[in-house]
């Protein structure tokens, strides 16, 4: 379903990314952009440090993308939105390659999903599906092994947008 929108999204994101390109070999730190909803809509950027300053949730789980069990740690998405004091019906999530998926806010739980900043205690590079990865504790409950959950599990997260 997300695939249908891909060509248009791709063009938009491509233009956006072009403007951000800096001709430097050293990789700039990736920021997580969050756009709140409502009349006073604003975009807030979170750095890794910002995220680390928040309450962390850690869990171990296997995933369909990794070989063994891995330990993820990061900030619960719900906690992040609460921090921003924003309200809406769903959240639009966009990856570095402009992959986009919309998740109803009702799906959010206190501890799942989290915006993982570390896998097995290490930060994740872009080559390693980093730096931010939305993950669920898949082993905890069969409901987390559903197709929608897998589509919500977005790698290389770049932007979050709360939609009314």
């Amino acid at each position: 379903m997300a695939q249908k929108h891909y060509p248009r999204i791709y063009v938009v994101l491509f233009m956006l990314l072009l403007s951000l390109i800096t001709p430097a070999k050293a990789r700039a730190e990736m920021m997580l952009e969050v756009t709140t909803s409502g009349s006073n809509s604003a975009t807030v950027e979170f750095s890794l440090q910002d995220l680390d300053a928040m309450d962390q949730v850690t869990f171990s789980t296997s995933t369909i993308w990794t070989d063994d069990k891995v330990t993820f740690s990061g900030v619960p998405l719900k906690a992040l939105l609460t921090e921003l004091n924003t309200d809406g019906t769903s959240i639009e999530m966009v990856a570095l390659n402009d992959y986009k998926v919309t998740m109803p806010l009702a799906e959010l739980e206190n501890d799942a999903p989290i915006i993982a900043t570390r896998m097995d205690g290490e930060t994740m590079s872009v080559r390693d599906k980093g730096p931010y990865w939305v993950v669920f504790p898949y082993d905890q409950d069969p409901k987390y092994r559903a197709e929608t959950i897998y589509t919500f599990s977005i790698w290389q997260l770049k932007h979050l947008k709360v939609v009314d």
Binding site: P23, K25, T63, D67, V126, R127, Q156
Partner: peptide
Amino acid sequence: GFSDQLQLRADIALSRLNVVNSGR
């Protein structure tokens, strides 16, 4: 010349190589 854009695209492409190599 070489740009960050290129770097990102290259990293993304390389990250996908891991996908076929691991997990399911």
